[in-house]
Amino acid sequence: MEKPLKTPPTYAIASVDHALRIATILQLEGALTVSQVAERLGVARSTAHRLLAMLVYRDFAAQDEDRVYHPGPVLELAAHSRSGTSRLRAVALPHMERLVNVLGESVNLAIRMRDTTRFIVSVECDQSLRVGTREGMVFPAHRTTAGLLLLADLPADELAGVYAEERYAEHPEERPDLDRLRAELTRVRRAGFALNQGQSERGVVAVGVPVRDSDGMAVAGLSVTLPEVRYDRHQLPNLVAALQRAAGVIGADLAG
């Protein structure tokens, strides 16, 4: 069995974590004010201002004449990529917040970027023992619920291209076993959901379903994450049903 990919550091440095989260949000969404940063991180405006000032100094952010912050040279992405991700996040967020209230667990939305998945928004539950925010984190696609859901939507030839041997020439150990992966993706397609028990992070269980656009294409993976000690397999049908309802509404809003 593969080892879990990520374990939170024993001694986390809050200021570094905050700065990295701001950089990620800027890269994904394109513009932020000091007030928005303070609200998203749950910190004082003065703290948000100091963090942004350091990011500007190191070229991770840039401030315009209206005192709005944008990605700096280090983070600059194509404008269409930001706008699409930003719209998806804006549409999904209120439905994700309602889902957290219903399930009492943290909820995430992730997109696929070739052979990786990137979490574009997380909503944490308020339980003392909970799975923290995944916003901005990147994992190999075949090791996450969202990644499996989005890979399962690909035609066979496109999947083969994503995992072509030449792309892993320098690190062949990172290439998944395609026969095993295809078999897993077949199970995901048939079930309509994906279950991840500790493949991405030790002690964490995630259940996810696809969010589809008006053409029926899977554009994101919506998942609920919870500590393994709180997971009961008898919960699975209810978790999947709640996720599917939320994903359906998000997809409808995207089409609208």
Rank of each mutant, 00 (worst) to 15 (best):
L151K: 12
A152F: 04
A152H: 08
A152I: 07
D153E: 14
P155M: 03
P155T: 09
P155C: 04
A156V: 11
E158M: 11
E158K: 14
L159R: 08
L159A: 01
A160T: 03
A160Q: 10
G161N: 13
Y163L: 13
E165G: 02
E165W: 03
E165P: 05
E166K: 07
E166S: 07
R167A: 07
R167M: 08
Y168Q: 11
Y168F: 15
A169F: 11
A169W: 12
E170S: 14
E170V: 13
E170G: 01
H171T: 15
P172R: 10
E174C: 08
R175M: 06
R175G: 11
D177F: 00
R180D: 06
L181S: 14
R182Y: 04
R182C: 07
R182G: 02
E184I: 02
L185P: 03
L185T: 03
L185H: 04
L185F: 04
V188P: 05
R189P: 05
R190L: 15
A191D: 15
G192Q: 07
F193P: 00
F193T: 09
F193E: 02
L195Y: 14
Q199H: 14
S200T: 15
E201K: 05
R202Q: 10
R202D: 09
R202V: 12
G203C: 04
G203H: 13
G203K: 09
V204P: 12
V205S: 03
V205Q: 08
A206P: 04
A206L: 07
A206H: 09
A206Q: 13
V207I: 15
V207F: 01
G208D: 10
P210N: 02
P210A: 10
P210L: 05
V211S: 01
R212L: 09
R212E: 14
R212M: 07
D213A: 07
S214R: 13
D215T: 10
M217Y: 00
M217I: 09
M217E: 11
M217S: 08
V219F: 01
V219L: 09
G221W: 02
L222N: 00
L222E: 06
S223H: 09
S223W: 01
S223N: 15
V224S: 11
V224D: 03
T225R: 04
T225S: 15
L226C: 10
P227T: 10
E228A: 15
V229Y: 06
V229R: 15
Y231L: 06
D232V: 01
D232I: 01
R233E: 07
R233C: 01
Q235V: 10
Q235K: 13
